[in-house]
Design a protein around this nucleic acid. Sequence first.
DNA 1: CGGTATCCTCACAGATACTG
DNA 2: CAGTATCTGTGAGGATACCG
Lengths: 110, 110
Amino acid sequence: MTKSNRSELPPEPDFQLITTALGIVSGKWRLYIILLLGEKTLRYRQLSEMLPGVSEKVLASELKSLVALGVLERTAYAEIPPRVEYSLTKKGHLALPILRKIQEIGQIFN
Amino acid sequence: MTKSNRSELPPEPDFQLITTALGIVSGKWRLYIILLLGEKTLRYRQLSEMLPGVSEKVLASELKSLVALGVLERTAYAEIPPRVEYSLTKKGHLALPILRKIQEIGQIFN
DNA sequence: CGGTATCCTCACAGATACTG
DNA sequence: CAGTATCTGTGAGGATACCG
């Protein structure tokens, strides 16, 4: 009774949900990558240039993980030279508003 | 011009904010600890029992870090046996709604 | 009760060189 | 251009024993 709770979170923290969520965002570059792709689709090289300091290996493996998690979508075009674009999936877009909000936490504690 | 943007986030991701935010939540038990204390003040032993699987050392060091970051408050009572209570600071309470929302990301990707 | 003090280990971030 | 392959180190996280 009381009222419907169709999309509300339980009042108590849920360890499973937290673990899943942290699996998405934890990693020095992940959140940044997702937020960049939340604005527009980008090519690998563009991402690499927008993230000075990240090594090729780390960027590639983070992208691969995020694709596997269903956050990002990878589109390869059969051209020469090769072109690969990364964008958010539907789920990624669903999560985007919350992911953006995480930056507000940074504002509070800066 | 346009409209006021007193508390809005910039459209582009801010690496500094993201880094600060991740420094708060990243860590296997941190978010869980914060959300538990978001509901009520708890003693060390209570936290320890609500987090089966966390070792004494890890719990103590996570609590210490969160206190240092300004998320938690530690109150020790000069009693025997000793009593120590942990609660959210003002900043912690400010961040709480966003921190709770992070669980929704888990719902999306489960 | 509320922690330290030690010791361990292994996953993962990073640098660099190379390839389809 | 868009990645792999390989090697390396660092530190978060953990197990256990002990202390004020």
